[in-house]
Design a binder for these strands. Structure first.
Lengths: 207, 207
DNA sequence: GCCATCATGTAATCTGTTACATGATTAT
DNA sequence: ATAATCATGTAACAGATTACATGATGGC
């Protein structure tokens, strides 16, 4: 029952080639960083247990002027274990989405505050989308003829779809928020019905 | 700098009304469950510290035949603390997306396995989208005239945008995968290792 | 009789991050 | 000088889930 995802992440990375703990960290940062990451505190102890469990082997490469490299390689059992996990249906855990939580309680603050929040979020997503497009280009050039390329591109596309949808959501949300400010704040001669009934202004001195 | 998100989640929930730990769990499950959740192991200890920190107060309601209810209410300081958090920009942590990780290593298994994986994922998203549409309807009816409604709807819309984008991504990905099966129907190449990065090939015999 | 709901909470465990310790080399 | 890169790892701390303990009521 104990399904340590980090374990499979590392098995997966090792399926791409023999690597050291240091390499693994770098590879995570340079490829899957958009949807996965591991810290040294996870990687090194896990590599040790993989060897103990017979899922990987370790060999040491001496180097001059640099520390030894401990290079890990998948065993056949390791690859089997990975494949077993790859084919079973991914379970979706409810990730914690901070922007949604903040907006859920948006009525506690001013609409302008929420607007600022969403605008900032939109800016971040904009950059992210640009980065993903750049990554896609780079990968197509660097990994041309690499059999992993189509799979890698699928994950990049995942990120692009998500980011694009988020940008759309930002637009929609900002337009809702701006009509809300228009109604409550500005030229508000008389608000017909859905006025601000429950909106009690908490006037408290900032202390 | 220690920013315990759970703390703000609970402060936020309490901003909607006075609640017991049990209520809070139920409320999480029935509203924000799509993007946030808390377990009793978090809630009860946190409620205690909120009282100690002066961010909430506790009152006890006796009941007949049932255990006492410990009902918590936000203090003004608690509300200030919440608002302080609400207005600061949400930082996006890189959530771990299992389906993306599995697909990233998709080359290790058969394309048919990946297709099954994505189809299952698509089915889950389909249900989710239906659920979100139902939730939207229910909320519009139940929370009509509740000032929180627009904010709640924004988070529902968030989920809808995400889910819809995921469904699109599934279609795209499935079509890529199916063209891949069409191509490789003959020789099933078994690639053992090497390559993804340093693929050093030096002198090769001519020919 | 058995299970679900109401309602509190704790303890054990797991998972993950951050900071630290070491130490040579190379680039600014 | 000093920072970054290479490279190993551990220890301390956060954060979160699960299982457990307790115990009454009410429905099937």
């Amino acid at each position: 029952m104990k399904e340590n995802k980090s374990k499979y992440a590392i098995l997966g990375i090792l399926s791409l080639g023999s690597l050291s703990g240091y390499d693994i960290k770098k590879l995570f940062q340079g490829s899957v960083a958009n949807f996965w990451n591991e810290s040294y505190g996870q990687i090194y102890p896990l590599l040790r247990t993989l060897v103990i469990e017979g899922l990987a082997t370790r060999s040491i490469e001496r180097q001059v002027g640099k520390p030894d490299r401990h290079v890990y390689s998948l065993t056949d059992r390791g690859r089997d274990e990975l494949c077993r996990w790859l084919i079973e249906p991914a379970k979706d855990q409810i990730g914690r989405i901070e922007i949604a939580l903040k907006l859920f309680f948006g009525h506690q603050v001013k609409a302008a505050d929420n607007i600022r929040q969403v605008e900032h979020f939109r800016e971040m997503r904009g950059r992210e989308l640009q980065a993903l497009i750049a990554i896609e280009k780079r990968l197509k050039a660097e990994l041309a003829s690499n059999p992993n390329l189509p799979y890698v591109l699928m994950t990049v596309s995942y990120g692009q779809h998500m980011t694009q949808a988020l940008l759309q959501w930002c637009e929609e949300t900002l337009s809702v928020l701006s009509t809300m400010t228009a109604k409550t704040k500005k030229g508000n001669k008389r608000v017909t019905k859905q006025s601000v009934r429950g909106k009690k202004r908490r006037s408290r001195p900032s202390q």
